[in-house]
């Protein structure tokens, strides 16, 4: 891990010094070792603050959206899942490839900062057995799919049974399922952290902010929350890159990836093998912007 830090610092200072990039996006240390934060270095001096450790879990590709209207050149460090986010943004024409210098890291799996905090403070009544963060346990793409420079050695996917949770819910009856979602989603406080952190959420005007017409109520009650999460999951269809950030940032522990993975599973089954953001082909369209005449329609 330490050699990654050194390598990233070297690359960042090199790029910032010779003007290849205007800003370099990586992580820096927060108050504690496990409180790593996203960091935007703008000079070679600042690049010395960059750090990469077990807790560099944040998906940085989302922060590229802040630069979509500028002309600045950007250097960015990505792990496997983050690099799929970059492809998502390229597919949506949110950023130009020429403006990016991508440093890929073959990700050995990250640890959960929250769990580390609980351990540190002694509040961990239920020490979880897993070493890695929940989102890293079922990783299908630890290696970057798009990069200019690659660090580390290629890792093998850690996936065991991606859709285990989905299958578990599917086995329940309709009323049981509704009750389950009512219970979990009624916890939602509508902080929209899951939307803000999402790399597939790149609309300039979000439907949930729109007042006229107001499609989804903004009240914090079970049905409006359920509406919010169903609409969000359907907007993620064919776009979710399974970085698991929404679930990680959720302050009330809603299993948000459950809905997303259900949609991923269905899109996979219905419209041929498809994983969002696996490779960038110019002009390629996501599954809901195209159609095949032979698509299934067994709903009749």
């Amino acid at each position: 891990m330490n050699d990654f830090t050194q390598q990233i610092q070297d690359i960042a200072s090199r790029l910032l010094d010779n003007g290849q990039v205007d800003v370099f996006i990586a992580w820096h240390k927060g108050q504690q070792d496990f409180q790593v934060q996203p960091y935007f270095a703008r000079s070679a001096d600042e690049a010395q603050n960059i750090i990469f450790n077990d807790y560099s879990i944040h998906n940085l590709s989302n922060s590229l959206l802040k630069f979509r209207d500028s002309k600045e050149k950007i250097g960015i460090v990505v792990k496997g899942c983050d690099s799929r986010g970059i492809i998502r943004l390229l597919e949506d024409n949110q950023i130009q490839r020429e403006r990016l210098y991508i440093v890929g890291i073959c990700c050995p799996g990250m640890k959960d900062p929250l769990q580390a905090m609980r351990d540190e403070l002694g509040f961990n009544h239920k020490p979880e057995s897993t070493e890695l963060a929940a989102k890293c346990n079922d990783c299908i793409q630890p290696n970057p799919v798009i990069y200019d420079e690659l660090l580390g050695t290629e890792q093998s996917p850690r996936v065991q049974d991606r859709f285990a949770r989905v299958k578990e819910i599917e086995a329940m009856s309709a009323d049981e399922r509704y009750q389950f979602f009512e219970e979990t989603i009624s916890r939602c406080i509508r902080c929209y952290a899951c939307r803000e952190v999402c790399v597939a959420c790149d609309c300039r005007t979000c439907i949930f902010d729109e007042m006229r017409p107001q499609w989804v109520g903004r009240e914090n009650n079970t049905t409006d929350n359920l509406m919010y999460h169903i609409v969000k999951a359907s907007h993620m269809a064919g776009r979710c890159i399974e970085c698991g950030e929404c679930e990680r940032v959720c302050p009330v522990n809603i299993p948000l990836m459950l809905l997303n993975q259900k949609v991923i599973k269905d899109v996979n089954e219905l419209f041929g093998p498809y994983e969002a953001g696996m490779q960038y082909v110019e002009g390629q369209k996501p599954p809901f912007s195209m159609y095949e005449e032979s698509d299934p329609d067994d709903f009749l």
Partner: peptide
């Protein structure tokens, strides 16, 4: 395509 996905999602939420 949308309906195929949406119907399954709606069934999933109960």
């Amino acid at each position: 395509r949308r309906q195929m996905m949406m119907k399954r999602l709606m069934q999933f939420v109960g």
